[in-house]
Computed example of a mutant assay.
Amino acid sequence: MTISQAGQGGAVRIGISGWTYAPWRGAFYPSGLKQKDELPFASRQVSSIEINGTFYRQQAPKSFANWAAEVPDDFVFSIKGPRFITHIRRLREIEGPLANFMACGLLNLGAKLGPILWQFPPNFPLDLDRFAQFLGCLPKDTAAAAALAERHDGWLKDKAATGIDENRPLRHAIEIRHESYRDAAFVELLRAHGVALVCADTVEWPRLMDVTAEFLYLRLHGSEALYASGYDDAALDNWARRIRAWTAGGEPADAERVGGKAVARKRRDVFAYFDNDLKVRAPADARGLMKRLGLPAAGAAEPPRTFAVKGRPASE
């Protein structure tokens, strides 16, 4: 079974948020695995990873090219949008920063570029006008992203990457963390732009399951302790059930919505990321959910890869 055949409908990608965590060494990562081999190793256990570094600072085009070269051909990254746009500028005067972000190298991922995640802080209440302007600025395909990237600030100079190998759709997802977003008008605004509302499983922020795009984006932070608690068998069974419903074009019976039910369709893709890393549960939970859905890791059809561990070869 390939990733695109899973979930009884649309494609399903299950992954982790980031990959560089010291507590994972000797637990998820084999003891002695070199840090440079952590991404190649992790990308052969799951089918997608969120790149978090883009949230904190501008990355270099070479980094994206290197990341793309280190993962299997059927692997996909999601990219976290910069906090400079969402947390500091708070969606005001963002034309230049948005162009700079598009030029930072993410287009170097080519076919391995997945959704762009825009996460908003808990102290950012809903402002429909501001969001409407922001959503209208987001490029809907890589050609539009490349054109926007060409308008980057001069300080980038030779640190910009604005070329594409071919034009592909570009997906965006919005993660909110304030109760004011329990608003049907916000859901309809996202639907009008085809932007996904992130379903964030957490004890602190709204958990909404409104379908607003042709794909779903789930962030599983830990429903008992933020970023820390794991998911037991019953919880993973529930998420697998919901994912099957979404990929088949419907919605789960327990969907938590503030807007009207989405129009049924033949299939929807689902991206789900575990972000409960403090207790080293994210990789195990991701693999547990993949098993329930009958999903292979990325690169399952590739020849096995070995990694040097403490001077001896160690197969993944």
Rank of each mutant, 00 (worst) to 15 (best):
Q8L: 07
I16S: 05
G18E: 01
Y29I: 05
P30C: 06
S31N: 12
L33R: 02
L33D: 03
Q35R: 10
D37F: 08
F41C: 09
S43E: 04
R57C: 04
R57M: 15
A60I: 13
A60Q: 14
A65S: 14
A69C: 11
E70Y: 04
E70P: 01
F77D: 01
F77S: 00
I79W: 03
P82K: 11
T86P: 09
H87L: 01
R92I: 03
L98C: 11
L98H: 11
N100G: 11
M102N: 14
M102Y: 11
A103C: 04
L106Y: 07
L107K: 12
N108A: 15
G110S: 13
A111R: 12
K112F: 07
L113W: 08
F120V: 09
F124D: 15
P125D: 06
L126T: 04
L128M: 12
F131E: 14
G136K: 04
K140W: 01
D141K: 03
A145G: 08
A147K: 06
R151Q: 15
L156C: 01
L156A: 11
T162H: 10
I164A: 06
D165N: 10
N167P: 04
N167D: 13
A173P: 13
R177F: 08
H178L: 01
H178G: 01
E179C: 00
S180G: 08
R182K: 14
E188T: 08
E188F: 04
E188L: 05
L189I: 02
A192V: 02
H193D: 10
A196W: 04
A196E: 03
V198S: 10
C199F: 00
V203M: 09
W205N: 11
W205L: 12
W205M: 13
P206C: 11
P206R: 09
R207V: 13
M209S: 05
D210L: 13
V211H: 09
E214I: 02
F215N: 03
R219G: 00
G222D: 08
Y227T: 03
G230N: 02
D232M: 07
A235P: 12
L236D: 03
R244W: 11
W246M: 02
G249Q: 07
E251Q: 12
E251W: 08
E256K: 14
A262I: 02
V263I: 10
D269T: 03
V270K: 01
V270T: 10
V270N: 00
F271I: 05
D277A: 04
L278M: 09
L278T: 10
K279Q: 12
K279I: 00
V280I: 13
R281Q: 14
A282H: 00
P283H: 12
A284G: 07
G288D: 02
M290I: 06
R292L: 13
G294L: 02
A297C: 06
A298P: 07
A298T: 05
A300I: 12
F307N: 05
V309H: 06
R312Q: 14
